[in-house]
Amino acid sequence: MQIQTAVIHALHDFEHRAVVPPVHLASTFALDPETEGGEYAYQRSSNPTRAQLETVLATLEGSAHAFAFASGMAATAAALSILREGEEILLPASVYGGTYRFVGRVLPARGVTGRYVDHLDELTDEDFTPATRAVFVETPANPTLRITDLRRVVELAHRHGARVIVDNTFMTPVLQKPLDLGADVVVQSATKYLAGHSDLLAGVVTTSDDELAEAYRLCQQAEGGVLAPQDSFRLIQSLKTLPLRLERQQANARAIVSHLREQEGIATVRFPGSHSAHEARLHASQASGPGAVLSFELAEGLDRVAFLRALRYPAFAVSLGGVESLICRPSTMTHEAMTPQARAAAGISDELLRLSVGIEDLEDLLGDLDQALAAARLR
């Protein structure tokens, strides 16, 4: 079953056999008085609508288990909950700012250390110590769009007894399946492409490791950061158009990349594979598309604020993956938790802009970028 069919038909075997399954809002469920048991007891532990969503998510990912959380960071926190006192995790220097904040301010209180590597493709056996228990990967990286060789990182990490956790938010399982490449855990901010309409917060963790699944199930039950039934239902509905949305978003993004690279007012354009021919080949070997996020810098002398103010369609806002285009300045928005030194090491300049491309008419988007560049030159 292909992915577009899977997102539509994955739930047709549920009890009620409704084409659109009902929403179960109950916070508690009646139990059998004799056995005091039942498939569902309390919404925090389990809920039929959340279970339906998790079935769809596991189907998309090709995983044995999926767990829905109340936000992408809640999912990331759950994914990292497997680390214990005295252990460390390796991360890329350009990791998402929210993850950087969690690793730097929350994990140390648990006795867990985060160690940053400029680029994970440069990892060697010497980078691993007996304390290294996990490697956290973003590919493409946010917002530099650098590519990491997932197969190589998995082979290195597993040789040293470390697990590999991949943030697949930019690619989604439509374009990249890290579990198929050997990763142990995939985490996504479902707020982004999976939901796709900038109207709900959600996160997902997927794995085929039964031991890890038990740990993540405990996170849901013990910590309670689960996705509510109404949002679970809305996410199920949004997933049905995910492949179609991504197809249009990628087509728009490809055209915008080509257009911007021809403009004198643009100094640099970054997209998956733009760093080198090697990274382009690598991305093509592990993903089926470039995604729809790009970043760029204006040429020297252009007014960044004037450019952003002149834009009619991309809103100047954090987040990405929605049907509407969004643009942000990572150094002060998505990665503001980083120190200036950490941003410099990650290749995130103060002038870098990240554009998440939506499904608007391409001619409108290109015209808008052109008139904004003209406004930036006038200043």
Results as ranks from 00 to 15, higher is better:
122 E>D: 14
92 P>L: 01
125 D>C: 04
147 I>K: 03
140 P>C: 07
122 E>Q: 13
75 A>L: 12
79 A>T: 01
167 D>S: 10
131 A>C: 07
97 G>N: 08
110 R>L: 15
87 E>I: 11
119 H>W: 12
167 D>N: 15
77 A>C: 07
145 L>G: 04
188 Q>I: 05
145 L>T: 14
164 V>K: 08
81 S>E: 09
167 D>V: 08
104 G>V: 01
173 P>K: 04
108 P>S: 12
83 L>A: 04
130 P>T: 06
153 V>Y: 00
105 R>C: 09
96 Y>F: 12
167 D>T: 09
122 E>S: 15
156 L>E: 00
173 P>S: 15
134 A>F: 05
97 G>C: 13
134 A>I: 05
145 L>K: 09
72 G>H: 07
183 A>T: 12
108 P>Q: 14
60 L>C: 15
159 R>M: 03
56 V>N: 04
160 H>F: 07
80 L>D: 06
58 A>K: 11
108 P>Y: 14
58 A>E: 09
157 A>K: 01
117 V>F: 02
113 T>A: 14
138 E>Q: 15
100 Y>G: 07
176 Q>S: 13
156 L>M: 03
151 R>H: 08
86 G>M: 13
175 L>Q: 10
91 L>Q: 02
152 R>G: 00
182 G>Q: 07
150 L>V: 13
98 G>D: 09
98 G>I: 08
